[in-house]
C-alpha cells in the first residue's frame, strides 16, 4: 500500500484540504452562476445603493468590499457541492482517508480564495479611481481574510443540506445573505439604526467584518478592532462546527 511515509495525519489533512480547494478552482471558478452570484450581484447592489446617496463614491468602497466578500465567498460551495452530489463525486471526498473537518475546510478554502481575488477589484478601484487612502492596512488585511473565511464556511454549512440542486441552497442562502446587507452597517450606518436593528446586527458576522474594514479606511468604527477579530473568529469556528455536524448527520 502506498502511503506518504514522512507524512503525519495533520499533513494528510492539510494536503487533502488543499487538493479539494485546487480542484474547485479548476472546475467552478468560471461557472456562469458563480460569476453572476459572486461578482455581478454585489456590484449591482453597490450601484443601487450608490445611486441614491449624495456622498463621494470613494467613501462607499469599504461597504462594497464587505458585500463583495459576503457574496463571493459564500457562492462556490452552494454550487459545487450539490453538483458533486449529483455526479457522485462528493462520495469520493467523504470516503477519503481524511476527516470531515478537512473536507469542510478544503471546500471553504476555495470560496475563501475566490472571494479574496474578487474583492481586490473594488479595493483597487478605490485606490486608483477614487484615490481612497487606507491608513490602517493591517486592519484591512485581517478584515478581508477573516470575513472571507467566515462566509466561505457559512456557504459550506448551507451546502450541507442534502440536495442535488444548487438553486435549493442558493434560495435558502439568499434568505440570510440579503438581510445581512441591511443590518450589518455596510450601507446603513449602525449608529442610525433603531435599537432592534442594532441588536440584530450584533448577530451578523458581516457587522464585525465591515466594521474592521471601515476602521482600516479611517472611518469611525463601532467596535474595537480586537472585538471585531474575536467575533469573526468565533463565527468561523461556530460555522465550522455546525457544518461538520450537519455533514455527519446528512451522510447517515
Amino acid at each position: 500500500m502506498v502511503d506518504n511515509p514522512g507524512g503525519s495525519q495533520v499533513s494528510a489533512e492539510v494536503n487533502a484540504a488543499w487538493a479539494i480547494a485546487k480542484k474547485d478552482m479548476f472546475i467552478y471558478y468560471i461557472k456562469p452562476n458563480i460569476i453572476v452570484s459572486g461578482l455581478l450581484f454585489p456590484l449591482f447592489m453597490f450601484l443601487a445603493f450608490a445611486s441614491g446617496k449624495n456622498v463621494p463614491l470613494g467613501t462607499l468602497i469599504p461597504g462594497l468590499i464587505s458585500v463583495t466578500l459576503l457574496f463571493s465567498s459564500s457562492t462556490i460551495e452552494p454550487v459545487s457541492i450539490p453538483i458533486e452530489r449529483r455526479t457522485k463525486t462528493f462520495e469520493r471526498l467523504i470516503s477519503a482517508p481524511v476527516s470531515l473537518h478537512a473536507i469542510v475546510f478544503g471546500e471553504s478554502l476555495s470560496g475563501f480564495m475566490y472571494s479574496i481575488g474578487i474583492a481586490l477589484a473594488p479595493l483597487l478601484v478605490g485606490i486608483f479611481a477614487f484615490g481612497t487612502g487606507i491608513p490602517h492596512p493591517l486592519y484591512l488585511i485581517a478584515g478581508m481574510l477573516l470575513t472571507a473565511l467566515c462566509f466561505s464556511t457559512m456557504g459550506t454549512l448551507f451546502a450541507a443540506y442534502p440536495t442535488e440542486s444548487p438553486g435549493d441552497i442558493m434560495s435558502m442562502l439568499n434568505l440570510v445573505r440579503l438581510p445581512l446587507i441591511f443590518v450589518s452597517g455596510t450601507f446603513i450606518a449602525l449608529e442610525t439604526m433603531p435599537p432592534v436593528g442594532k441588536a440584530i446586527s450584533y448577530l451578523s458576522p458581516l457587522t464585525y467584518g465591515n466594521d474592521l474594514i471601515q476602521a482600516a479606511y479611517g472611518h469611525p468604527a463601532y467596535f474595537s478592532p480586537f472585538l471585531d477579530i474575536v467575533m469573526l473568529l468565533l463565527f468561523f469556528f461556530i460555522f465550522q462546527f455546525i457544518a461538520h455536524r450537519l455533514y455527519t448527520k446528512f451522510n447517515e
Binding site: V2, N15, W18, K23, I27, R92, A96, P97
Partner: peptide
C-alpha cells in the same frame, strides 16, 4: 464518479492527493 471538467491526469493526481500519496 470522475470530474468531467478535469483531465484524466488531473483526476488521478487529485485521487492521489486525497489519499496522501507522495
Amino acid at each position: 464518479n470522475v470530474y468531467d471538467d478535469l483531465t484524466a491526469w488531473q483526476n488521478i493526481m487529485f485521487a492521489g492527493e486525497l489519499y496522501n500519496v507522495g
